[in-house]
Design a protein around this nucleic acid. Structure first.
Length: 926
DNA sequence: CTTCTGGAAGCACCA
DNA sequence: ACTGGTGCTTCCAGA
């Protein structure tokens, strides 16, 4: 493990800043050793950690918001502060406020003690949890300062101890542990309190911890964010807190019983104890649970209530909040109880997290520590880890503070820079469970390993490439709740890496060195599968794990800018099927020869992928915003040409030959009742599409639906959500420091729109997620929030008033963590499937406010507001953008271009009428 | 001996 | 309520 520590530390610019602040402080207090290291780091970096913490401000605002993560992110953004060091901007205050109680003090306060409470498995009840939280908060303050840093880590570690034991593979554990510790500190920023807990655990325990930690952590973000709805049910409901805990516990327990629902349900998790099996873990989990519990219980009172309310108000939010948030929140909230309450309502998650933000890193750390510590403590109190590597890490960890939340959609290129995946990973990679040994690093389809390169960077300063496991569904890209990146070490691994935890999401940090042309070979990243039962129980988790087995590798790089800001770029790989069974049976479309075609159909399209059968069927589907299928048509396939890896289909004519603007539909390959590929995007172009289309709006709509996805070629073009590339809502997002960009007015409105539409539809239809964002409390957010959000689409179904919007936005951002919330921005590329990676802000277009952005699912898509993005982001990207570019700029026009091909010069008049009708209709709908 | 894998058994859930 | 098909996890065993 330690080995991992690379020399790099210094190299990673980011790390230092972030980590430093939080970690350093925290460490110092609690663990001498660790502390020292961190402190050292901090010194080097000189961040203002505290300030950074401030970055969080947003979060504070968000409090209401659900996702802690968001908070973090948002906060960062909001703060705009300095990139790394970030200053804090006013944000902090905001945070505090928002956090309400959060106050720094409070936050830290988390009372580790509470942890003890943990015991309370029985608590199940949320109420109890809240209570805990409260307590914690109270406690925190006290400790926060001193203990916080070090202690937490230690605590966590200790807690995790349980984890430790459990853990299985060294690599992971070791990594985790190490990383985790650091991470935790770092993470704060991002992660909100939530994170912390996780992290801490992870960290400390070293080995095992990691896993546990992640899951939990994941839960926070992932849960929130993701919501898959899909499947249906979502277990999580009840448990939020518990779930977190449970999750943790459960794993360990795995042995025991997996899921007994009864068990799970609650306590069982507690069962975590049970988990013990996993030995270490068991306890750890327990602890965790405890934590959660505690948190819950304590805070419960107020927060619980609030949460409940919130939940009611906003579904998605709720979940989020519920999940991890609770604790986190609580903790954070704790700081300011009153506030907390408020927050919670809004978005639990947010609230929680945010609070943290406020606090200085230290505080966060404290929180985390506390939590962790609490948990851990109770269980184990092991000394923290050695920090040897700690320092090194710290550099890496930097990210946290002001960096954009992991669920933020960021562009892959901006100005002269472009982050590109030179070698895509294989479409299948069997993830390993914690109970199994590692299944190795993700490989490239052609052998070797994926590789990523940052183009356009001419500085001599090394950067850190972040890697985390993201979702691959139609929705916006976000950390995957059920999968975590797993650090692979060993003789076969040539790339140095270090694990960090951000918002409960494990992030692998890999050095990008100028001497290597800023290129990194990803041979150190495996994929860990978390048990569905563990994750679904999380408070905030809305996604379900069943059949949610596709992921994408998400790479990020944060480039310091002369103006003190940080430009963040992100690119996501093609989807990777991680299920053994699915990989063997489900058809997978990796590429399609055409992303769009005339409404008349008749053209052939070649699909390449896996598991195609002679009798495979290709079904084209048009979905309404609410998710209903408006039209379904089986395409003719050429059996003769069908091969396991390729399928030739004849594009069927669209139901409406008179469309005036491109219409995005989906199609999938079906090998049987339950053996369907993911939806792929396809855009029907008007037969005549004269350029008439003038109205962007029209175009947009269509585009929205799918557009984004197209970027890449990605096989998966998922519909709207596509996330793939989504852009960041705002470019600004990209820039860490000042989120100023965000503020950009226009954006916000748009966002709102998006959010509204998307969310609404999203939720409605597919069911997904929970977008519901809490509205948050817009008020709460205040200015701070506004900034950040830009990217994020607001969750709320309906757009709030302008003012609110911003706030919401921010919340959303914060919410990013939360599933529902994710930003809606989407690139417009209409149909074309964008590669995941690509996304540019610019590309994004705002969806009409009203529009449901596209089809139901797509709604999420949002739109983006290019303008909103900060200059940095904005810079359009270089040509590379590809499809996106087209989209981006003028979605409409672009579309138009396409159309021409097929269009006939038909009757413009008719066309115009149609357009008008469409518009009017759309407006109405909207 | 450890790690990486492929295969599959068992159990629980979904239709 | 029952049953078959699926999907998720855990185990086993070979390389």
């Amino acid at each position: 493990m330690p080995s991992t520590s690379f020399p790099v530390p210094s190299k990673f610019p980011l790390g230092p800043p972030v980590a430093v602040g939080g970690s350093g402080e925290t460490l110092g207090p609690s663990a001498p050793a660790g502390g020292t290291m961190k402190s050292a780091e901090e010194e080097h970096y000189g961040y203002a950690t505290p300030g950074l913490g401030a970055g969080l401000p947003l979060s504070a605002a968000h409090p209401s918001l659900p996702a802690p993560c968001h908070d973090l992110q948002s906060s960062a953004a909001g703060v705009s502060t300095v990139g790394y060091g970030g200053a804090v901007d006013s944000g902090p205050s905001g945070y505090f406020l928002s956090s309400g109680g959060i106050r720094p003090n409070g936050a830290p306060a988390l009372e580790s003690p509470r942890i003890e409470i943990t015991s309370y498995l029985g608590l199940h009840h949320s109420s109890s949890q809240f209570l805990h939280e409260v307590d914690v908060e109270d406690v925190l303050p006290k400790r926060s300062p001193s203990t916080a840093t070090l202690n937490l880590p230690s605590l966590e570690a200790y807690r995790d101890p349980s984890c430790l034991s459990p853990a299985s593979s060294l690599s992971s554990r070791s990594c985790n542990s190490e990383a985790s510790s650091y991470e935790s500190s770092f993470s704060y920023p991002y992660a909100s309190p939530q994170t912390s807990p996780w992290q801490s655990p992870c960290v400390s325990p070293k080995t095992t911890d990691p896993e546990e930690g992640f899951p939990r952590g994941l839960g926070a973000c992932g849960l929130l964010g993701s919501p898959r709805h899909s499947p249906s049910t979502s277990p999580r409901t009840s448990v939020t807190e518990e779930s977190w805990l449970g999750a943790r516990t459960s794993r360990p327990s795995s042995p025991c019983n997996k899921r007994k629902y009864g068990l799970n349900g609650r306590q069982l998790s507690c069962s975590p104890h049970p988990s013990p099996t996993p030995s270490p873990q068991g306890s750890p989990r327990v602890s965790v649970t405890d934590d959660t519990w505690l948190g819950n219980t304590t805070q419960y009172t107020s927060s619980a209530i609030v949460a409940a309310i919130n939940a009611l108000s906003t579904d998605s939010s709720l979940d989020l909040g519920d999940g991890v948030p609770v604790k986190a929140r609580k903790t954070t909230l704790d700081h300011s109880p009153a506030v907390a309450l408020k927050v919670e309502p809004a978005g639990e998650d947010l609230g929680t997290t945010p609070p943290t933000p406020d606090f200085q890193p230290e505080e966060f750390a404290a929180f985390q520590h506390i939590r962790k510590g609490a948990f851990c403590d109770q269980y184990l109190s092991v000394p923290q880890h050695p920090y040897p590597w700690a320092r090194p890490r710290s550099p890496t960890s930097y990210t946290s503070p002001s960096l954009p939340a992991l669920d933020w959609q960021l562009p892959s290129h901006s100005g002269p820079y472009e982050l590109r995946i030179e070698v895509q990973p294989k479409s299948h990679h069997r993830a390993h469970y914690e109970t199994e040994g590692s299944r190795g690093a993700v490989k490239a389809s052609a052998g070797g390993h994926p590789s990523v390169q940052l183009h356009g960077y001419v500085e001599s300063e090394p950067l850190t490439l972040q890697l985390f496991i993201g979702t691959a569904d139609d929705r916006l890209l976000r950390p995957h709740a059920f999968y975590q990146v797993h650090r692979i070490t060993g003789k076969t691994v040539s790339t140095a890496s270090h694990e960090a935890v951000v918002c409960s999401t494990k992030v692998l940090e890999i050095p990008l060195l100028p001497e290597n042309s800023m290129r990194a070979t990803i041979d150190c990243a495996g994929i860990l599968k978390l048990r569905n039962s563990d994750i679904e129980l999380r408070k905030g988790e809305t996604d379900i794990g069943r059949k949610n087995t596709r992921v994408r590798l998400v790479f990020r790089v944060h480039i310091p800018q002369p103006n003190g800001r940080t430009l963040s770029l992100q690119v996501a790989s093609n989807p990777i099927e991680c299920s053994q069974r699915s990989a063997q049976e489900l058809p997978l479309v990796e590429k399609q020869s055409a992303a769009s075609g005339p409404v008349l159909g008749g053209k052939r399209m070649v699909l390449s992928g896996h598991n195609f059968l002679q009798d495979s069927k290709v079904i084209f589907v048009e979905k309404a915003p609410d998710g209903h299928h408006i039209w379904e048509m089986e395409a003719k396939t050429e059996g003769d040409l069908c091969k396991p890896n390729s399928l030739v289909v004849e594009i069927p004519p669209f139901r409406n030959q008179r469309i005036t603007s491109p219409v995005q539909v989906n199609f999938y390959v079906c090998n049987g009742k339950r053996k369907r590929s993911q939806y792929q995007h396809f855009t029907y172009l008007p037969a005549n599409v004269p350029i008439i289309k003038t109205e962007p709006s029209d175009d947009y709509e269509p585009a929205l639906t799918c557009g984004p996805m197209s970027q890449g070629l990605s096989p998966l073009p998922k519909p709207c959500y596509g996330q793939p590339l989504a852009l960041p809502p705002d470019p600004g997002a990209c820039l860490m420091p000042g989120f100023p960009s965000r503020p950009q007015g226009s954006a916000s409105p748009e966002l709102h729109d998006l959010s509204c539409a998307p969310y609404g539809s999203a939720t409605a239809g597919p069911g997904h997620s929970p977008l519901g964002l809490p509205r948050p409390v817009g008020g709460v957010l205040t200015s701070q929030e506004a900034p950040r959000p830009s990217g994020v689409p607001p969750g709320p179904p309906q757009p709030p008033p302008p003012t609110l919007l911003q706030p919401q936005v921010s919340p959303t951002s914060s919410g990013s963590c939360s599933p529902g919330r994710r930003p809606a921005l989407c690139p417009h590329s209409p149909s074309s499937p964008l590669p995941p990676g690509t996304r540019e802000p610019t590309h994004l277009q705002p969806c009409g406010p009203a529009h449901p952005c596209g089809t139901g699912h797509q709604q999420h898509q949002p739109l983006e507001v290019p303008s909103s993005e900060p200059a940095a982001a904005r810079p359009l990207p270089p040509p590379e953008v590809r499809e996106d570019s087209n989209r981006s700029l003028a979605p409409i026009s672009i579309t138009v271009k396409r159309e021409p091909q097929e269009l006939d010069p038909l009757d413009l008049d008719d066309v115009n009428e149609i357009i008008r009708n469409d518009l009017s209709s759309t407006n109405i709908h909207s």
